[in-house]
Design a protein around this nucleic acid. Sequence first.
DNA 1: GAAATAGTGTCTCTTAGACAATATCTA
DNA 2: TAGATATTGTCTAAGAGACACTATTTC
Lengths: 252, 252
Amino acid sequence: MTDRSAQPGRRARRSPEFPLPYTTVDVVIFTVLDQALQVLLVQRPDGADEPFPGRWALPGGFVDVALDASLEDCARRKLVEKTAVASPYLEQLGSWGSATRDPRGWSATHVYFALIPGQDVMLAKGANAANVAWFDVDEVTQKSGLAFDHDDILQTAVERLRSKVEYTSLPAFLLSEPFTLPQLQRMYEVVLGRPVDKSGFRTRMLAAGFLKEAGYAAGESNRPAMGYRLADRHTPVIFPRTFSPRAPNTNE
Amino acid sequence: MTDRSAQPGRRARRSPEFPLPYTTVDVVIFTVLDQALQVLLVQRPDGADEPFPGRWALPGGFVDVALDASLEDCARRKLVEKTAVASPYLEQLGSWGSATRDPRGWSATHVYFALIPGQDVMLAKGANAANVAWFDVDEVTQKSGLAFDHDDILQTAVERLRSKVEYTSLPAFLLSEPFTLPQLQRMYEVVLGRPVDKSGFRTRMLAAGFLKEAGYAAGESNRPAMGYRLADRHTPVIFPRTFSPRAPNTNE
DNA sequence: GAAATAGTGTCTCTTAGACAATATCTA
DNA sequence: TAGATATTGTCTAAGAGACACTATTTC
């Protein structure tokens, strides 16, 4: 009945003969600031006509058929609008769609998650600067008062991130280049929420072969550390084992 | 500009003031038949008005706002329509959306992938039975003549499946219960395309603790094997290591 | 008893994890 | 030289992979 081809006449572009769900894109933007994992949220406008007025939400919005060539384009557009970060790590998280998640009607959102270096952050200025802010991830996930089903989405995003950090080089995308191994280790520790052994960490990272030496970072105090750049700024490396075989990861 | 709240008046459900993309759901249904990984495809109808007439495609179609409470409901509906399998393993794969993937206009599809036991397969009969068939995955992915962007989608699904089989109990969902460890091992070998050591395999599976003994399966020839059932028919177990540390998986 | 398949035992080698030791900078 | 941080080395124990061996059925 609802097969793609069941009804001729569906081809009218502007006013199809059957109702269409809304299509939106949301982006979960993570960074590490002040030794804590943070997520970017925007405050929804007030107004009786608005869904969830005044509540905080993930940045996102309707797909613009005229502007966006693809879902990922749409996600990048929203990301640049809010953070002015040009080319972050961007990965699709999944999609959420139901009749009830948006009071305006059946809607489906395509969710991406992005990792950006804390140093690069420059929140969009202008009229609505006050409506955009970083939040500590642990605090937000405990409070659970986000708009739409964004509590669920954020929860899933955090689980996915923490899970993948156990066996990928993802935290490298939270640093601007060049970075040192101790800095990278700190990213792992912040995201995982536990200390990581120095020696094993170094062996593992260097063996994975995704780092290129980039000279010593001068100026700091104490012994200077080797700086590194990523061989591939887009794809994380997958390690053959997790960090803690004793406590296997239970997420995807 | 395209923020969810930018334009009041967008709330009109039936005829919004801006064009909406089409929203579809597709399902990549895998099974193992004749010692080979197979995928279910449906043939698109002929007709000048139809996109990709006569081409094979993944089963799927438009979300029906009246019928489907959620995306997953929609996926299950399409799965039951084609295979009559009630409760298979179903997981979201991702979404594909762009202005060009469907000649009828901007469309976004939410893709799920399902694993069903070969024994349970009973393709939907009736008028369009001839339009539904199983295809060897390796053959289809080489030929690359599917409708829409389904070649890409299938490719991604196969990579995801093969990748996850390296460190999860997913192949158990390709068997009907009760099953034996040698049968399970064969599922792994078929999907991975390589032999797996018997001893290590058994140790690993039993240590993972996701199997419940279910008595010996009588009647076969030779020594009978212990039958097992899954403790959880919905969630796969994740092993702390991949099967072959020597050749780490490079996919997600 | 032979054939076939199910299940177990043993050995080796890799490697993670813990922790100790050394190196190089600033003050 | 003291303090701080970077980097390397060593030891041990757990576990994977390889492969040989035993067990239980049918014919």
